[in-house]
Write a protein that binds this DNA or RNA. Sequence first.
DNA 1: GATGAATGAGTGTTCATTCAT
DNA 2: GATGAATGAACACTCATTCAT
Lengths: 226, 226, 226, 226
Amino acid sequence: MVTPLSNSSRRAAEPSVLPPDTAVAQPTTPRGRRTRNALVHAAREVFEEQGFHSTKIADIPRRAAMAHGTFYTYFDSKHAIFREVVNAAMGDLFQATRSGLGDGGSPVERIRAANTRYFAAYARNAGVLRAIEEASFRDPYFHDLLAQIRAVFVDRITIGIRRLQDQGLADPKLDAERAAASLGGMAEQAARHAFLFGDSFVEDLTVDTLTRLWARGIGLDPDSHD
Amino acid sequence: MVTPLSNSSRRAAEPSVLPPDTAVAQPTTPRGRRTRNALVHAAREVFEEQGFHSTKIADIPRRAAMAHGTFYTYFDSKHAIFREVVNAAMGDLFQATRSGLGDGGSPVERIRAANTRYFAAYARNAGVLRAIEEASFRDPYFHDLLAQIRAVFVDRITIGIRRLQDQGLADPKLDAERAAASLGGMAEQAARHAFLFGDSFVEDLTVDTLTRLWARGIGLDPDSHD
Amino acid sequence: MVTPLSNSSRRAAEPSVLPPDTAVAQPTTPRGRRTRNALVHAAREVFEEQGFHSTKIADIPRRAAMAHGTFYTYFDSKHAIFREVVNAAMGDLFQATRSGLGDGGSPVERIRAANTRYFAAYARNAGVLRAIEEASFRDPYFHDLLAQIRAVFVDRITIGIRRLQDQGLADPKLDAERAAASLGGMAEQAARHAFLFGDSFVEDLTVDTLTRLWARGIGLDPDSHD
Amino acid sequence: MVTPLSNSSRRAAEPSVLPPDTAVAQPTTPRGRRTRNALVHAAREVFEEQGFHSTKIADIPRRAAMAHGTFYTYFDSKHAIFREVVNAAMGDLFQATRSGLGDGGSPVERIRAANTRYFAAYARNAGVLRAIEEASFRDPYFHDLLAQIRAVFVDRITIGIRRLQDQGLADPKLDAERAAASLGGMAEQAARHAFLFGDSFVEDLTVDTLTRLWARGIGLDPDSHD
DNA sequence: GATGAATGAGTGTTCATTCAT
DNA sequence: GATGAATGAACACTCATTCAT
């Protein structure tokens, strides 16, 4: 889902979505570090432009203006360097959707704010997210990664719904976790279409519609301001 | 989205999502027809098992127990035979979600019924849908195909929402088309997770949650029975 | 060379350039004869249009609007059917350059007339001649065939030069046979460029220039009329 | 025609018959240069032995004792490497027939000398010329290349004939360019038969006969020594 | 005889990976 | 470390030929 809502508490124990790196070699010299960074940077560009499968390993050192063989000094495979690219992008996604949340405003306003931040973060990382999705069809590592990312967001949303249920504001008959999965999926799908597949996207209208459906779906009155 | 709602009317003019076939040769003899069918069946199996990109052309005639070259008697490319497989699966998807609809019951019950049929049809064709998604990342033909399929479902849903708005049952402030896209996306995403990615799926609960969110999202009371 | 001059005598013993056919089967029924003829006719068209190597066996029955397999009822190979096509064309070439020759006029006029007939016959069979040349690079059969055709023409020319030398009209220092080969080659090359390679060809001027060079080359005065 | 005559002047502006190279990669290291050269050398051998069409790409790296894939490091296609081979051979042909020309001797002696040099250069490059002719039947690039080569030689001869006409030595009624094309064609055809098709070739006799026909054809007395 | 489907050896091309310099 | 050339397994595609109907 890769979708927000509250998040509120739990600044600490977000499960590590980012598995340990298994790069071939960690550079020991500054020169080595520079080369490695240049490769990762080039890789992000190439993956964004060409997607995962169309990217040939040779494309990456070529983009970084270095010799083909240099790639293998630092990475085993396309898979390995893509992990690095993904880790950076996912860090941004989590940070952006977490920071400055959960404070003021009515529940509906907080849903709207979370959705707005979510769309912004998704848009920034759309190229990488697209490549992850593409890779996930054949690569269990990236499949699981996406599942973990979604779980984080679903957890956040679940907590938010439960709190609203506890406060008597949301429909107590809803299965909070399943509702969170559904609503998060709705937001993710909207973002996928807007940013991965290039469907027309009018931000305000989309966010507004999503927020109305979401709020009313769980039993809030989207037009109230309490 | 690949999601239903009503549709009721318009049994006739669903726009053709299935582009004209461009097969290399149409067999003229029964034997040829059998061989071609065997290839298409084998292809469906292989695509379901291995996805689109991992499938090598040679896998298909091998699965059908015939010579490699026979493939090229009937098809130009992996792309060409996959179209055939896809056409059959999409035909089922449209038929199943269309037939026997829109009749009795309250609006909420009709939403529930449509979602139930949708999930069933999606499950039957999950393997092919997964391969289409995979192919769509690199192949504009399949990208557009998915867009067209979604458009058909969004249209159906849009019409249903508009009717409920006309009847004073649904929130008139909703942008019907955008709401349709969002709700259809919610259902599609749920189906994707359940059937493409193997998330746990408890049918009744998922359909129930979706239906509640959907109904209340557009302003219906999910617990009313009118 | 494939070039004329006199020819005069020797109506009989022209060496057989056309080797025995080795077709797979000679049809015994009228239907079979029709089928076989249709194949040969189609083959000529296809070879003229596409040349020898580019022609695929399947092209020939397809052009003749019959089943692919029928080809093998009558011919073993592309080579075999091409022989048939070639035999017919070579027959025309010999007949046309032989008939109505050697009669009236001065020696120069007879040379001019022979060249004119030669160019006409070459033009009629240009497509086949081009295909023969193409085939001759890899196929000794057609290589030898061209050599034999040239030999016939060179023989004719040699005899003509010898007669003129005997009559005191041509340079007695010339090696008649080698001169015949050279002059025949000059005419053949002119025809190749004009008809095989599509160089510009102004018939009168080309024939006139060739005839002047040829006549004066062997010692005749091209402007005398005796 | 690929035939000389004088040329004398115009040492400079011979039109470039050799189109720009379109090689895939130019090696940057000595090792790479060695490999590429080895491929070109091997290719020349293979093309000379087997002709153009019978040569399979795999034959070339095999002859050079390297891996199949190495071919594609430097060349796109058989066509591309053949261009390299051809460029070298054509360079020799032009240089050899140009250098040391036009100096001493009577006009007839200069024609004889040019023919002698031409036959020698043709013989050195016979294998490549044969392959070019073979390729030219299906490949416009090589067809045009042959046409350009001939045009260069015809130009040279035309200029020689015009000079002799201006000096009152050659028949003023001759169309110089067409005569050049004819005489050049005669020489080329003689060379083709001798070196491409293995006809018997007695150098002195052939050159002598050609020279006599050529000289007398344009109006010179082959037995005069002025 | 005629048909047209089936066969599979032959060839071209790509690209991840290794390795000598 | 960096370089870029060399490798060869993997895969796509063609087409002459055979053969059951």
